[in-house]
């Protein structure tokens, strides 16, 4: 039975490899006459610059988003009903409307008129700053919801024990609830970071010169085809795959722990 399964697997692998090979061959062959990899090499500085910008935007939004997510979670658990409702309202609004709309509206209509001048005067470029801010808010709303679910899944006895040993409200969260909640949702948080990295490409609509923006400039400027899109895909995969693997790894580890 093992032997037969092995042969079946091998056959399937050969068939899949053959089909994919034929497909790639057809596509790349047809496009080969228009594909000139040296053009991508010429633009490597710009592409690299964009990739670095994407990396820093995603990292900054990751940190800010996490802080905003924590605040959303705490806000929704506040004793003050007004704070709870406000947080809930903002969070639903952010989650249930498209990021693209937040970016266009938030930047051109609200934040740029308010902040572009003072930021510019201080020598800052307002676009990436406001872009990161909106991206952080959007992802903070998702993280806030993930964290709230995790915190609410911590059993009552842990809250009681934490209060019984004399922790104040902040210490209860800091030393008992959040460490346990984070362990539970680390895979989900890692998964949402993958979305964040991909979503950072939307910042091109407000003119942030990130990876997608620069690649698109390269493509439209040189009529590039595959030599533009292949590096783009690889560039994003280099960022997202490790995080996705981390998410799977954490998930497996967590399953073993419980």
């Amino acid at each position: 039975m093992n032997r037969r399964l092995w042969i079946a697997n091998l056959t399937a692998a050969l068939v899949v490899a053959g089909l994919l090979g034929a497909l790639f061959n057809a596509v790349f062959g047809a496009l080969a006459t228009h594909t000139d990899w040296s053009r991508a090499w010429e633009y490597r500085g710009m592409l690299w610059q964009g990739w670095l910008t994407t990396l820093s935007i995603a990292s900054a939004a990751l940190v800010c988003g996490m802080i905003i997510g924590l605040l959303f979670m705490l806000g929704q658990r506040s004793n003050l009903v007004v704070v709870r409702w406000c947080c809930r309202g903002i969070l639903e609004f952010l989650r249930d409307t498209p990021l693209l709309v937040h970016l266009l509206f938030g930047y051109f209509v609200i934040l740029a008129p308010l902040l572009a001048r003072p930021l510019g005067a201080a020598g800052w470029n307002d676009k990436p700053i406001i872009g990161v801010l909106i991206l952080s808010l959007f992802h903070g709303a998702y993280l806030g919801e993930i964290l709230r679910g995790a915190v609410e899944s911590i059993p009552r006895t842990q809250w009681d024990s934490a209060r019984a040993v004399g922790f104040d409200r902040i210490q209860v969260y800091r030393h008992v609830i959040i460490p346990q909640a984070l362990r539970r949702v680390l895979p989900a948080i890692a998964g949402s970071f993958v979305s964040l990295i991909k979503d950072s490409s939307l910042l091109n609509v407000i003119g942030v010169t990130e990876f997608f923006y620069n690649t698109r400039n390269f493509i439209t400027g040189t009529y590039a085809g595959l030599e533009g899109y292949v590096p783009l895909a690889i560039g994003y995969l280099v960022l997202t795959l490790p995080v996705a693997w981390l998410a799977h790894w954490l998930e497996r580890r967590f399953r073993h722990e419980t």
Partner: peptide, 26 residues
């Protein structure tokens, strides 16, 4: 001091840390 029927300890901390953390922080 207070002890409940069960699940008193913080599961992410060792026995020693369970005792030391409140002594330090509280």
């Amino acid at each position: 001091g207070f002890l409940f029927q069960q699940f008193n300890l913080f599961p992410h901390l060792t026995a020693l840390e369970n005792i030391a953390l409140p002594l330090e922080k509280a």
